[in-house]
């Protein structure tokens, strides 16, 4: 039997009579890059929000490493090792990239409630901070104001911050959205690089990226799973072609 890091069982989410997610059974195999695709409004981001408990499912359950995490809070889920990125770049815009990454590392020191200590004790993290910034090519921008960086760099910073937590499962919500071709290639390479020793679940519109990266694909349509399998298989599925690929290639 395959080793699933994350499973959802019959997941539903309704918003005042509108069913955004309807009976989704998702199984993410450990070590895979798993892509979630589907036309606009198919419920991809809603599924993400359910998995990270930014939304509460109407019914159904979510299991991580075999444990039922359906009733846990967002912060607890992050502590378990599921860390997400957001569709619009999630950075702390008024802080520097150095501080952004440091905030992710700081939690492990266990001093985050210590308001009586000087923040100089955080300097011990700087070595690791710079390594992570190096990985995403942001060393030269470490002390700029994040809000003033170019879009692609903010996304790279977000990935560096997420990596700092060393998550078991990384959820990436459209990592290449709104990027130029050059940045897309960079991020694709970066995602591949960081996928060793961890599992990635990503929502992605860019099918070229999905074809290059994903081990397995789930296609959502109107909140329900339409097809699932490796890219080569799914991309030939007549249902998928009709619902999604057809329009995407048109």
């Amino acid at each position: 039997m395959a080793d699933y890091i994350l499973e959802t069982k019959n997941l539903f989410k309704e918003f005042r009579g509108f069913t955004a997610v309807s009976g989704v059974n998702l199984q993410i195999q450990r070590g895979h890059i798993h892509a979630l695709i589907g036309p606009n409004g198919a419920g991809k981001t809603t599924v993400f929000n359910l998995l990270t408990k930014f939304l509460t499912p109407t019914s159904g359950s979510i299991h991580f490493n075999g444990d039922d995490i359906t009733s846990e809070k967002s912060a607890d889920i992050a502590l378990r090792g599921i860390v997400r990125s957001f569709q619009i770049s999630a950075v702390f815009p008024g802080l520097t990239p150095r501080e952004n990454v440091r905030l992710a590392l700081q939690r492990k020191l266990g001093v985050s409630y210590h308001f009586w200590k000087s923040d100089a004790i955080l300097l011990q993290l700087d070595g690791r901070v710079m390594e992570l910034l190096e990985d995403v090519g942001l060393v030269d921008y470490a002390d700029e104001i994040t809000g003033e960086l170019a879009y692609g760099r903010k996304r790279a910073l977000e990935i560096a911050t997420t990596l700092a937590l060393d998550p078991e499962l990384m959820l990436l919500d459209e990592p290449t959205q709104g990027m130029g071709v050059e940045d897309v290639d960079k991020i694709t390479a970066l995602v591949r690089k960081v996928s060793t020793r961890r599992t990635i679940l990503m929502v992605e519109h860019n099918l070229k990226v999905v074809a290059t990266l994903a081990d397995r694909i789930t296609v959502l349509q109107r909140g329900a799973i339409l097809a699932e399998g490796p890219y080569a298989e799914v991309s030939q599925d007549p249902l998928v072609l009709e619902a999604y690929m057809g329009s995407a290639h048109a």
Partner: peptide, 15 residues
Amino acid sequence: KAIRENEPRAVSLGY
């Protein structure tokens, strides 16, 4: 400061 800048992100970092 992180909470002031971006609360959902602070939550997703586990705070």
